[in-house]
Every structure is written in structure tokens, then in C-alpha cells.
């Protein structure tokens, strides 16, 4: 446990030292704020206080931001050889991966925390469905966790950050868009399976305010699958 926490701390420190954290937070707040207040279903016209447009845009911004955060996390350690330094200490691959996972999730958590003023201002405009808002935040956190895990998996495959970034996006786009898209255009068992695999299906059902164990289980499976696969790759110690 101690080891995981130490790695999380170090990773967070490195996010903030390298300005990545500040840039990510500022860009995220600007984009999501702009869309919440100016574009899309404009809060001043729909006659109902809601954060739907914020959740819709965060769904996409996080999809692109997370691979940018995770891409260096393993790939850079492999390139510079520090992964060897780390894994010859009394630290397991498992602890390294969870440490990094938690660091990225914490950063996303901080970014989301800073969007709470949006929530409070919208609230002051009129009645708001508080349950739906909190469910929306939970949905964003779960989705982020799933993509962090996929990002770490992609990053552990290579020692090139750009390859890790593109690979994470490539895997992610299936869950984010393609599975849902394909399942809508076909029928039968395949459609059901793909519809289940589609992350947006589960995200939508959570943001509607229905927190179902089935959806939670779906996200947890992706998180664990990603970390377990990344661990398997790290254990193999392949050189490229």
C-alpha cells in the first residue's frame, strides 16, 4: 500500500512540475466552460437548469486528454530504463501500475472538482436535478478510470510516447464510439454484445441518474482488464 502511495505522489509531483497538470486543467476548464455556457443547448434557452451539455462535452474532452496524460507513464520509464530501477526495488509491477493509475485519476478528479462552480452557478439559475449531476460526475470518473487503464496498457506496449498515445486512442475509439455505432446498424446477438461493450451505453445510463450495478461492473472490468494486461506485458520485460 505504502509503495502505491509513494508512486502516486511521485507521479503527481511530476505532472505538476512539468506543467502538464496546469495545461490540462486550464484547457479542460476553458473548453467545457465554453460549451456549457455558450454553445450546444444553451442553458439560458432550454428553460431548465441542467449540466447535460457539460457532461456531453466532458465525455469527449476527457477521451482525448487521458491518453495524453497516460502516454508517458510507462513508455517513458521503459525508454529511459527507470522501470528497471523501479522494479528491482521491493515494488511489484502491480503496485507501479496502480500507483500511476491513482495519480492520473487524482489529476482528473482535481479537474472535475474545479468544474463544481459551473454546477453551483447553474443551480442558482433555477431548480436542478441534483441526483443527475452527481451521477454525471460519477459517470465521468468511471469513464476516466476505464480510459486511464486502457492508456496505461497502451503505454506499457511501447517505449514511444506518441505510439502509446495513438494506440490508446485507437483502442478507446472502439469503446467510445464504434461499438455503439456498429451495434445500432446490425441486429441479433452481435448487436447485443457490441451494445454491451460500448462504453457510451453504460455512461449514458449512469448520467441519466440510474446507478446500476451492471454498469459499475462493466467499468470495473475494463479497469482491471487494462491493468492486468499491462502487468502481463511488464512482467515479460520485452525490450522494445
Amino acid at each position: 500500500m505504502m509503495q502505491i502511495w509513494l508512486i502516486t505522489q511521485r507521479e503527481l509531483q511530476s505532472f505538476f512540475d512539468s506543467l502538464i497538470a496546469y495545461i490540462m486543467i486550464v484547457v479542460f476548464l476553458v473548453i467545457s466552460g465554453m460549451f456549457t455556457w455558450l454553445y450546444g443547448s444553451d442553458v439560458f434557452f432550454v428553460n431548465q437548469a441542467s449540466l447535460q451539455s457539460f457532461f456531453a462535452i466532458a465525455f469527449w474532452t476527457l477521451f482525448f486528454f487521458i491518453p495524453a496524460l497516460t502516454m508517458k507513464q510507462i513508455a517513458e520509464e521503459r525508454r529511459s530504463g527507470t522501470i528497471e530501477m523501479l522494479l528491482t526495488k521491493p515494488v511489484s509491477e502491480w503496485q507501479v501500475l496502480w500507483g500511476k493509475f491513482l495519480a492520473t485519476l487524482t489529476l482528473i478528479g482535481i479537474a472535475l472538482l474545479l468544474t463544481l462552480p459551473y454546477y453551483f452557478t447553474v443551480w442558482s439559475l433555477g431548480p436542478i436535478d441534483h441526483g443527475a449531476v452527481w451521477a454525471g460526475y460519477l459517470g465521468l470518473l468511471l469513464m476516466s478510470s476505464a480510459y486511464i487503464s486502457i492508456g496505461l496498457f497502451a503505454s506499457s506496449m511501447t517505449n514511444n510516447q506518441i505510439v502509446a498515445f495513438l494506440l490508446a486512442l485507437f483502442i478507446g475509439i472502439f469503446f467510445h464510439l464504434l461499438f455503439g455505432f456498429i451495434s445500432a446498424n446490425i441486429s441479433g446477438l452481435a448487436a447485443t454484445v457490441l451494445n454491451y461493450l460500448s462504453l457510451s451505453t453504460h455512461y449514458d445510463s449512469i448520467t441519466r441518474g440510474v446507478i446500476d450495478t451492471k454498469d459499475i461492473l462493466y467499468f470495473l472490468s475494463i479497469i482491471f482488464m487494462g491493468i492486468i494486461s499491462a502487468e502481463a506485458i511488464l512482467v515479460k520485460r520485452s525490450v522494445n
Binding site: 511521485r10 511530476s14 512539468s18 526495488k89
Partner: peptide
């Protein structure tokens, strides 16, 4: 291999922590 972005003191402290 070392974490180039860390100050020496922090780095040594980090490694000491990993070693328990």
C-alpha cells in the same frame, strides 16, 4: 537510469521510501 525531473534529495527520499 534516474528520474531526471526530480531533485536529488526528493529522489533519494523516494527510493528510501520504496525500500521501506
Amino acid at each position: 537510469p534516474l528520474y531526471y525531473d526530480m531533485p536529488i534529495i526528493d529522489y533519494l527520499g523516494f527510493v528510501a521510501g520504496l525500500h521501506g
